[in-house]
């Protein structure tokens, strides 16, 4: 989906449209070359939270860079397919991707035979952080987290719980939740946030572990059909969903942390330009408003700070990834 097809079609589309395609601010810097397209790999299904916010940020980055950014979805295997493709992409900066901690850290598990580690990527910066939420359908018998835990304790292994995929944040959050509360769910791992929301809406599972951004449009308070029981976080949120801690359950915070990376070895100027473009996008008032409205919190960091954050995430999640395998 890159240059050749654009060129091909621009020719077919005719001069009138060709002029429209190339529009945008002229790039003064040496990278990116005008007329190139940047491909942004989202390693999850379209319609999930990462996809949704990636599609909001990339047009703003595109404005700052002066070249189009095309989002492509490469879902599967809890982001491993997309991340492998990204790690193997040409290190020219024209392919970037979105990764989520802890999901992308699956390379810490040798059984996954990941073709990459942290060293396979060039960090660009963090994009956004989302809260993990536990939700049920509005017609569910569970009104509070307490009722759910009580029922689950009495009936171990019976209540089904949707996660967005093996080793996804939702999956690790579910495991962490089980550990902290002593309950035992029958976990159902879907392929992405969209399908797990659909399954919960359809009543095919009793509860679901979601990212706030995927859940928000479906919330009761917004005209939807799902009721959030608890946020797995130690901080209050603007959506008035109580935290697990406030309901008396000492569950650690599990927040999907989405960032942008490129293959290792991209030119320094490309890394700098992408980092600047990300900064511009995250400081855009439209993005700030959209983030609050869609359940994401944002804050720019330099590539160096992002690397530190990456190392910290590796240390924090390694034990949970061990547990998830059992």
């Amino acid at each position: 989906m890159r240059l050749s097809r654009r060129t091909l079609l621009a020719g077919i589309a005719g001069a009138a449209l060709a002029s429209a395609i190339g529009s945008g601010p002229a790039a003064a810097q040496s990278w990116p070359e005008p007329g190139r397209t940047i491909t942004a790999i989202v390693p999850f299904t379209a319609g999930g939270g990462t996809d949704a916010f990636a599609r909001r940020i990339t047009p703003k980055m595109s404005e700052a860079l002066g070249v189009p950014i095309e989002v492509v979805n490469r879902p599967g295997a809890s982001s491993q397919i997309g991340m492998t493709e990204l790690a193997n992409a040409a290190p020219d900066g024209y392919t970037i991707g979105f990764q989520i901690f802890p999901t992308s850290l699956a390379y810490l598990d040798p059984e996954r035979q990941s073709a990459y580690t942290r060293d396979s990527f060039t960090p660009i910066g963090p994009a956004f952080v989302v809260e993990s939420v536990l939700a049920v359908r509005t017609d569910s018998q569970f009104e509070t987290l307490g009722q759910l835990v009580e029922h689950a304790t009495a009936n171990p292994g019976v209540l089904t719980a949707a996660t967005p995929g093996v080793l996804s944040t939702g999956h690790l959050a579910a495991i962490g939740f089980e550990q902290a509360t002593g309950v035992d769910f029958a976990l159902v791992n879907f392929q992405g946030g969209g399908p797990s929301v659909t399954a919960t809406l359809g009543g095919h599972v009793a509860v679901g572990f979601f990212a706030m951004n995927e859940l928000l449009p479906q919330l009761e308070s917004r005209g939807g059909q799902l009721r959030a029981l608890a946020v797995l976080s130690d901080q209050d949120n603007p959506y008035e969903v109580p935290t697990a801690v406030s309901q008396g359950f000492d569950v650690p915070s599990y927040a999907p942390d989405v960032g942008i990376v490129a293959p290792a070895g991209i030119p320094a100027e490309a890394q700098a330009a992408l980092s600047e473009a990300l900064k511009a996008a995250l400081e855009d008032p439209e993005i700030i408003a959209a983030a609050a409205d869609t359940g994401n919190s944002i804050g720019w960091e330099s590539p160096e700070d992002y690397t530190a954050r990456w190392i910290e995430a590796e240390e924090r999640y390694a034990p949970l990834i061990e547990l998830a395998k059992q």
């Binding site: 379209a46 319609g47 996809d51 949704a52 599609r55 909001r56 047009p59 989002v71 449009p217 479906q218 917004r222 005209g223 939807g224 059909q225 869609t294």
Partner: peptide, 13 residues
């Protein structure tokens, strides 16, 4: 869906 959201529209209920 992506095009919707770029235009500031959120599909949903």
């Amino acid at each position: 869906l992506g095009a919707f959201m770029v235009k500031g529209l959120t599909p949903g209920p």
